[in-house]
């Protein structure tokens, strides 16, 4: 009931083509995250699905029905906006009731759904307040409540957590995840934060300049990035991308090794030996930035949290040979 298929969807603003023809299938019940740097067209893509922007070419079908020309309200989708877009002059109750009132649902049914949504989202005590009297997290929940009561075939989220502080963001991330588990409804989620993408998604769509770079589960993207862009975008801290002679030794133009796949130890016999520059001690891990290894790039290494290395220490680095990603001159995976 929430299968969305994009077929050759294209979007141009005047002369500028922001999304070249693109195919994508979102299966029913999936949590799909569009991720990419700002300006990559991920929000535009979401707005095309929502119907807030008209496609320049191609087709969108929802539940097997052609929805390309349908107005937003008729697509059976609900959207949560980055700014929440709550109606400031209405109480929380009226905000949540608004889509149902527009649909002409009977009063009793409206009331029942509002109560249910408020209970699920911990909003029962706030139903008679105005959005201006709520905190950021509560406003977010009201926006989600307004989406839930419509019982849509899919939810669309446009960077919903970017206005929240870090602690709230983690909490809301979990709430949205649980909501997805309990509703089992298709969700399409746009973010520029790869951590959100990795933690929430069933399927990640990595976008760059309107093009899909790779589609896959979080672990697929982590294990086998198709190209340099995905390799550099997924994972934190980012993958070490090393060119030059070292790459040629592996028969590639560029090789990539994730910081967590490099062992640090004594300088004797290690393939790369360098000096610790900055070391970030997070408690659970330590990130070492090692230079002077003879490689052009500074190498980031994730070491044990209590590793006794400090600025200026000599250290030997051994990359895990099974975890070296090789890329050709075009940046594609070998």
């Amino acid at each position: 009931m929430g299968r969305i298929v994009l077929n050759g969807v294209r979007k141009a603003f005047g002369e500028v083509e922001v999304i070249p023809p693109l195919d994508l299938t979102i299966e029913d019940g999936e949590f799909v995250v569009f991720v990419g740097p700002s300006g990559c067209g991920k929000s535009t893509l979401l707005r095309l699905i929502a119907g807030l922007e008209d496609v320049t070419g191609g087709e969108i079908s929802i539940d097997g029905r052609d929805a390309t020309e349908l107005p937003p309200a008729k697509r059976g989708l609900a959207m949560v906006f980055q700014s929440y877009a709550l109606y400031p002059h209405m109480s929380v109750r009226k905000n949540i009731a608004f889509p149902m009132r527009m649909a002409g649902l009977p009063e009793g049914e409206q009331k029942r759904r509002i109560e249910a949504a408020a209970k699920a989202l911990n909003l029962t005590d706030y139903l008679d307040r105005r959005p201006g009297q709520l905190s950021g997290g509560q406003r977010q929940r009201v926006a989600i409540g307004r989406a839930i009561v419509r019982e849509p075939s899919a939810f669309l989220f446009d960077e919903p957590l970017s206005n929240l502080d870090a602690a709230l963001r983690v909490g809301m991330r979990m709430e949205i995840g649980e909501l997805h588990k309990s509703l089992a409804t298709t969700m399409v989620y746009v973010t520029h934060d790869q951590v959100e993408a990795m933690t929430m998604a069933d399927k990640i769509v990595v976008l760059r300049a309107g093009r899909i770079e790779q589609v896959g589960t979080p672990l697929e993207l982590y294990r086998t990035p198709h190209n340099l862009f995905v390799a550099g975008f997924i994972g934190s801290p980012t993958m070490n991308l090393i060119g030059g002679a070292e790459a040629e030794r592996h028969g590639a133009r560029t090789i990539g090794v994730r910081p967590e796949h490099i062992a640090s130890g004594s300088p004797d016999g290690a393939p790369w030996v360098g000096t610790v520059g900055l070391s970030e001690h997070l408690g659970s891990d330590t990130f070492l930035y090692v230079h002077g290894t003879g490689l052009a790039e500074t190498v980031t290494v994730r070491a044990d949290g209590e590793v006794p290395l400090r600025h200026g220490d000599r250290v030997g680095l051994t990359p895990n040979p099974d975890r070296i990603h090789r890329f050709d001159a075009e940046g594609s995976r070998l």
């Binding site: 807030l52 937003p72 906006f81 877009a85 889509p99 527009m102």
Partner: peptide, 10 residues
């Protein structure tokens, strides 16, 4: 966004 939200809400 408020107008768009209203539009989505029908």
């Amino acid at each position: 966004e408020q107008l768009e939200a209203a539009e989505m809400d029908g």
